[in-house]
Design a protein around this nucleic acid. Structure first.
Lengths: 193, 193
DNA sequence: CGGAATCTTGAAAGTGTTCAAATCAAGTGG
DNA sequence: CCACTTGATTTGAACACTTTCAAGATTCCG
């Protein structure tokens, strides 16, 4: 039985959800411990489960043909992990998901997910809302990324996600910002003055 | 009564949808004619309706504090228009939506939308699927945008959306790619050789 | 302590921007 | 139909920013 306060809070944030339904939802999930640097999804595999980050943090990225890593985003506590396209459509994943710290995921597999969506309005609502919100966020981010310099992007990241620079290696932060690690180092040096 | 074959095709693409339900869905929509260069949404307004593009094309963009336009994407036939965040949460919009050609939208307002989602499983399904698909697409795009040069972005755009360069002024294409119009001109010149 | 990984710094090269001017295209009114 | 206006695209030259490559400094961890 899942006891994570963070996850409970998430489930109970659905409108008009009764305690029986909460319990039923929890019953569909399993705890998964993940070691630092381990991958939970790799390109080409079918993503078998999605997971709520209860502890730790993840990066998700793509590899270009030339082997260049491009970090799409990070997932901290309260976020979900997993290649959505692969999970929902049972297609090979196009992204990698890697734990940057020792982590704990609250996971659900594809068939349990489908079943849960059918029997729980509340869970379906929460999941669709998460997707919608994430979609809107990345749309806004995408617009800003186009018109900002590297320094502006870095400063915006510090405002929006102050955790990132604390918990993530700088070469990964650079990849997230779409710049070279050397450039990030110089930007930080310049700002600290 | 809506008769657009494009819209009908979209509605009928839901699984197991009966003709009565199709008719009921159609009854919630209204045709809206939009002149070229008109805006259907502006920053700060509440987005009152979303619309299915039956004819024409739109750009949606943000304006930075400095007044700089940054095009997020274009919407052609078969896409939806409207500031989703504003529409769903009844908040002021953060984007502008502008018709680039004379256009025809098949629109629904916020309360009819809410009602329709409740009474039509099929419509709710189609809408959530659209959001999911759009989300996944922009995630992938976001990853590529970080690691590609201007020329690579332009070539990818030509592959994925060949209509854009045909139907959209080049300075808007440049904004969409996140480069200066002069740079786009030089890239096109270089490629044509 | 020692080695590996990470971060910083410098110099040269590359890519894209800016600004100004020239060219091209489309529509308007005489 | 032409001259004119306005908007869009192209071109050139100087400049700014970021990358690359190479090397050195620092940190982490067994």
């Amino acid at each position: 039985m899942i006891t994570s306060p963070l996850f409970l809070k998430f489930i109970r944030s659905a409108p008009d959800v009764k305690e029986e339904e909460v319990t039923m939802i929890l019953d569909h999930f399993t705890i998964l411990q993940v070691k630092a640097k381990d991958h939970t999804v790799r390109e080409g595999e079918i993503c078998k489960h999605i997971g709520f980050v209860n502890k730790g943090c993840f990066s998700y990225y793509t590899l270009s043909e030339s082997g260049r890593k491009s970090i799409i985003h990070f997932a901290f506590e309260d976020w979900w992990t997993g290649d959505l396209q692969s999970f929902l459509k049972r297609q090979p994943a196009t992204t990698y998901w890697q734990a940057l710290e020792e982590a704990e995921l609250i996971t659900i597999n594809r068939s349990d997910f489908e079943h849960l969506c059918k029997i729980s309005q509340a869970f379906k609502y929460l999941f669709d809302l998460k997707t919608q919100t994430a979609y809107i966020k990345i749309l806004n981010k995408s617009a800003k990324d186009k018109s900002e310099t590297a320094e502006e992007k870095y400063l915006r990241m510090l405002e929006e996600y102050p955790q990132i620079i604390q918990r993530v290696p700088h070469y990964d932060v650079a990849s997230y910002l779409g710049i070279a690690p050397e450039s990030l180092s110089r930007i930080r040096n310049k700002i600290s003055k």
